[in-house]
Design a protein around this nucleic acid. Structure first.
Length: 154
DNA sequence: GACGATAGCCCTT
DNA sequence: AAGGGCTATCGTC
């Protein structure tokens, strides 16, 4: 198991990417100290591009064991949400054919690979909803995506 | 209206 | 058996 580290200007924190041959997990690291960046895996470079506004989607092979069938459904559906757009928990639930809206939220809360699976693009019907790493992150990510898309259209 | 409490949803632990 | 990254609904003000 190897850990890559990159810095994200978007939310001003480090991002740790854990992988074997395939991507295993992504975590945000809030720390004051300066960390050494390390980029070995393809997905790390892609994430780096993402945080620089130069990539809108990811090559998708990842290896995340221990997820229930339900959680997989939720995450798969979430992957389809396009860069810069959002979907509500209830709409997502509808798409995978369940009324368990809150269970959808719980599944997203355990998303092992944020950004790649864009759980930040899933919002509450009235409001923003939650985010494991803090809703401020979520807001920053969404604003960032909006901003970069605008830049492209000009 | 707006806001808070409540009661359902159904998966997870 | 309890509790969630939710929501629709029903009291209050």
């Amino acid at each position: 198991m190897i850990q890559d580290i990159i810095f994200s200007e978007v939310n001003g924190c480090y991002v740790e990417i854990e992988h074997g041959t395939e991507l295993r997990s992504v975590r945000f690291i809030k720390t004051a100290e300066k960390l050494m960046e390390s980029k070995t895996h393809k997905i790390t470079f892609e994430l780096d591009e993402y945080f620089n506004g130069k990539r809108y989607d990811f090559s998708c092979s990842y290896d995340v064991p221990g997820l229930s069938a339900f959680a997989r459904k939720v995450l798969n559906e979430t992957r389809k949400v396009k860069y810069g757009s959002t979907i509500t928990y209830s709409e997502l639930a509808k798409r995978i054919g369940t009324r368990a809206v809150q269970a959808v939220g719980s599944a997203l809360a355990k998303n092992p690979i944020p950004i790649i699976i864009p759980c930040h693009r899933v919002v509450a019907k009235n409001g923003i909803g939650g985010y494991s790493a803090g809703i401020d992150f979520k807001i920053q990510l969404l604003e960032f995506e909006q901003k970069t898309l605008m830049g492209d259209n000009l």
